[in-house]
Design a protein around this nucleic acid. Structure first.
Lengths: 192, 192, 192, 192
DNA sequence: CATGAATGAGCCTTCATTCAT
DNA sequence: TATGAATGAAGGCTCATTCAT
């Protein structure tokens, strides 16, 4: 019935989509294992495809990096307003949202490192994170300020970068507890 | 007879020392300009020596990195007890000492990044920093805890790594104020 | 019964012919723009077909090149006898025919270059040009020799290659006037 | 006696110079065999050195090409005034000089091809040839014009490019006689 | 001891060609 | 038959490291 219209649009992409999924999985794993600078060949090998396939799907390394992390960044961004609506106070929502962000970063070893790199290949990644998350963070900070819970002059951009930096190296080293440090940082924001 | 060789030895040493000094200066400048991953040849060129000379003096990159920063780490380490003795309260001493550390890091672009790298070449650097500074930080934290100024359970190692991480990227980006974030972190330590 | 298959065959042919025409146009444009070494994909994209379609129609690059230029080579070849019949003297006919050839070449940027290439992909092209044009040139030269207008010992093959070579790079460089040089070359053939 | 000053300047370069010579020989041979686009690796292999050695001596391909042909271009350039002084008439000198140039080109298969390439890597080569040879050709043309031997309006740049183009493919093909065609071209210049 | 020439592994990227859909 | 995804060989270039001078 509707099978005609269903078939018409995607067609050939069955295998290509499978490949793209394999590529993203392989890249994600490779980024964790060896950092986002991992050689393209290694990713290709892990995905069981030729290098050309990677270049076809993701012409630049930035395209690949963004693709790997896009879904999770989106989910994080969307969680902000939801937490604000559901939580008791704005400050609680802020803490929970930051925890969400931290959990995301520290489970993706190498991502926090990539976020602070100023290499050209990462500019797009950097920009994508900021474009998506700074407004959300801003909203949460504003609400907490309006509720008289935290200092007024805090900058969302700086705070997110700080949180991101604190997550660097977490996961490699059991002696380094990024979550605790982020809590201290947020605690430092509180009035009184 | 052997007066020649006797003379020869100190002379060589003088040369070698001069060379080592030039090397360290060049490496320091190169690290600031291009990060601690800067090509060996660039350092050699800046120092006006051949690459072989660098390898002779510093067989591994870690040896060079540690040598470059040793004096400043020492100075920082020694400042800890002095501040504790001179400052009004342990907490004031802690804040001042952390500021000293932060100033050191953010004026050495690339150093904070190197400290968090888990590349083999940087292990020695990492270890040297921690060996030297963790005990000092511990001492300051203990004093502040004993004075009832900060939370008791804080770990010096984690704190120093966090402070180091917060310094990453400072200096490249006027929108990122690492000093402010470190202040918030330390503020988060305070009781009440 | 077989009316269906009878209809089917011409229909396919119509499609195929349309495709082939689009391909030749696209290839012609691409050759002009980027030389006959232009990537197959570029031609396919310009033609709006897949690369596979090109390989189906023209298994080797030479096949495609010859197909692109066949019509114009034919037209040039056929103009020879016509000019000989219409012009006042054989020498005039020769000059006009050479000018025709030169105009053809210098309006197809990259073609003269391709003609002199000894790459395997161009052998067929080379051969086709020569098979078709050398006899015509020979006829014109013979007539001019018979009329006592030019030196007798001239070889059509060499002359055509020389004229082709002189056309290389014409059109890129306003300081290089291929037509003028070809005129000098033909002038050099004249007796006296 | 003067051995001290002799030794002081060159030193280490003994092997390096040997290598450079080997490189130029290998490159020259490789250019002839495979054109000036020959892979760097092939040249390195032929010379028995690593690719790095080539890049050390000749940072760009253009540097290598110019180095390979410099001596012979110089010799050709210097022969111009000498021929003009020694030959009976300017036209004779011109013919002999052009023959010298032609002999040079057709014994370096691939060189004439490279000269007409507009690839970036060859710009320097192109420029070097023209800078060095156009003035010499101009001088010879001027003298022949002044002697009333050839047409006055001939441009040295265009003539040299034409001669160069006529030499393309000579040597691969016994049926193509570039020398003869160049003679015809120069004959075309003659008055009457 | 210092030098810097040489080495070559290793990464990136492009594209001709094949073949499953 | 047409498509275009996938492949992988090929070539460019950079540097860490070694070693003859």
């Amino acid at each position: 019935m509707d099978s005609g219209s269903e078939r018409a649009v995607p067609r050939k992409r069955a295998d290509a989509r499978r490949n793209e999924k394999a590529l993203l999985d392989a890249a994600s794993a490779a980024f964790v294992a060896s950092g986002v600078d991992v050689p393209v060949r290694d990713i290709a090998a892990k995905a069981g495809v030729g290098v050309g396939t990677i270049y076809r799907h993701f012409p630049t390394r930035a395209d690949l990096i963004v693709a790997v992390y896009r879904h999770q960044i989106e989910a994080c961004a969307e969680a902000g307003p939801a937490l604000l609506a559901d939580s008791g106070t704005p400050h609680t929502a802020l803490v929970q949202w930051i925890n969400l962000f931290v959990d995301f970063l520290i489970t993706k070893h190498g991502l926090a490192e990539a976020l602070q790199s100023d290499a050209a290949a990462f500019q797009t990644l950097h920009a994508y994170f900021l474009d998506r998350l700074v407004p959300v963070c801003d909203q949460l900070l504003d609400a907490a300020v309006a509720a008289g819970e935290i200092r007024p002059e805090t900058d969302a951009y700086g705070l997110l970068r700080g949180v991101g930096n604190l997550c660097i190296g977490a996961g490699n080293d059991p002696r380094y507890d990024a979550r605790r440090l982020v809590q201290l940082l947020i605690a430092g924001l509180r009035l009184r």
